[in-house]
């Protein structure tokens, strides 16, 4: 097993653990702000997972999936913030 394979395996395990932690925060998060931040973090972790998966399989096509997830997650966070501000102003 080469060094790269060991590193990829470790990072997959760690990203999986952090996904579990984020899901716990998403489920119990007391306020809606916690849940929005958790969703944003979930997308960031998904991008990291896609990148690691691309390294593991030695393909570059999955990296475009990461780009799309990054764009849409940014849009989603902005939209959430937009509606959150409207709600708190009323």
């Amino acid at each position: 097993m080469s060094f790269l394979e060991i590193a990829v395996n470790i990072s997959i395990i760690m990203i999986g653990l952090s996904l579990i932690l984020i899901f716990i925060r998403l489920a119990i998060g007391p306020t809606i702000e916690d849940r929005i931040v958790a969703l944003d973090l979930l997308a960031a972790n998904a991008i990291g997972f896609v990148a690691v998966y691309a390294i593991q399989n030695k393909t570059t096509t999955f990296l475009d999936v990461g780009i799309i997830v990054a764009l849409l997650a940014f849009l989603g966070t902005v939209a959430f913030a937009y509606y959150l501000e409207r709600r708190t102003r009323k």
């Binding site: 096509t61 475009d64 764009l71 902005v78």
Partner: peptide, 18 residues
């Protein structure tokens, strides 16, 4: 390869939504 009209249209719509 991955991609196509559907995803392209969605990304373009996301650009306008932003």
């Amino acid at each position: 390869e991955p991609g196509g009209g559907f995803v392209g249209g969605l990304v373009a719509a996301a650009a306008y939504a932003l």
